[in-house]
Nucleic acid binder design. Structure first.
Length: 277
DNA sequence: ACGAGCGCCTGTCGGC
DNA sequence: TGCCGACAGGCGCTCG
């Protein structure tokens, strides 16, 4: 699933629960089932399982696309990669296809990590910084000012799209929200980062925040077989709209490959050379 | 420093 | 129908 808005949606859903599902907060782990060993990045699976037993969930937070589950002493960190998902389910619910890991609670509920493509990973650590080291600033954090963002772009000379998706540069953007933000800012995905003007950089940061906020408000995007009730897929301006008319100017949306990723843009609203709207 | 290519996985879809 | 390649919300690695 996940880019920042999807991870944030999962975090919010789990932390408080809803009418049917209890909050994850204050659940106590009685046992752990691991169905795919490689899901656990560290420590080794035996230690991972042993240390989780008896822990209580104290808090849930997010850093970029990482979900942090704060326990009494350690922190359990998940990265959902391409297809990971976390759900609270009744303990009696049978194990489903692609379930990789589950935490069983003393409440009769369990937290299940389901991950079709097996790219997702979990870490258990006393020092989250070891897992998160090197990750870039949080895009919605007001500490990231337009001036700082402009400076960050200036000291690199990279194609803007892969740079925005580089988690060391900025935390949380993936393929969908990057395409949407570049369209919203009117910037071509292949522009070199150090050719952006200060106004363009400011526009881009505002656009990034706008699409992320809209994504969170929509409870994320739900496409393909993963459906969580998100609605942002109905608001895509360019993503997966190849050949369809630009919603701003009517020109067919183009698809190119940038950094081995599908990239969608409007050749008129996002001109190769330059600045505009 | 940057970008291309590939590996990690499973599933779906479209073309022949 | 069956097969085969392309593609999918991510990221780490190597190589030039």
């Amino acid at each position: 699933m996940p880019e920042l808005p999807e991870v944030e949606t999962i975090r919010r859903g789990l932390i408080s629960g809803n009418g049917e599902i209890p909050p994850l907060l204050h659940q106590r782990i009685t046992s752990v089932d691991l169905f795919w060993r490689k899901t656990v990045a560290s420590p080794d699976p035996l230690q991972f399982i042993q240390e989780l037993k008896g822990c209580e969930i104290i808090d849930l937070s997010r850093r970029g696309k990482f979900l942090l589950i704060n326990l009494d002493r350690e922190t359990l960190i998940f990265h959902l990669r391409m297809s990971g998902d976390l759900r609270m389910q009744p303990a009696g619910e049978p194990t489903q296809q692609h379930d990789r890991l589950q935490l069983n609670f003393n409440s009769g509920w369990k937290l299940v990590f389901n991950d079709t493509r097996k790219f997702g990973r979990a870490w258990l650590t006393e020092d989250p910084q070891k897992v998160l080291s090197g990750i870039g600033p949080e895009p919605l954090d007001s500490d990231l000012t337009p001036d700082k963002f402009y400076a960050m772009l200036q000291v690199r000379s990279r194609q803007i799209k892969p740079l925005l998706m580089d988690q060391r540069f900025l935390a949380g953007l993936g393929n969908i929200y990057t395409d949407e933000a570049l369209f919203s800012a009117g910037i071509h995905p292949l522009r070199r980062s150090d050719t952006l003007t200060q106004p363009e950089a400011e526009r881009l940061l505002a656009a990034i925040r706008e699409v992320l906020q809209k994504g969170i408000l929509a409870k994320g995007a739900s496409i393909d077989w993963v459906y969580r009730g998100g609605d942002f897929q109905n608001h895509f301006q360019v993503y997966k709209r190849t050949g369809s008319p630009c919603l701003r100017c009517g020109t067919p949306i183009q698809r190119i490959v940038v950094g081995q990723r599908s990239t969608h843009f409007c050749p008129v609203c996002q001109p190769q050379g330059g600045s505009h709207v």
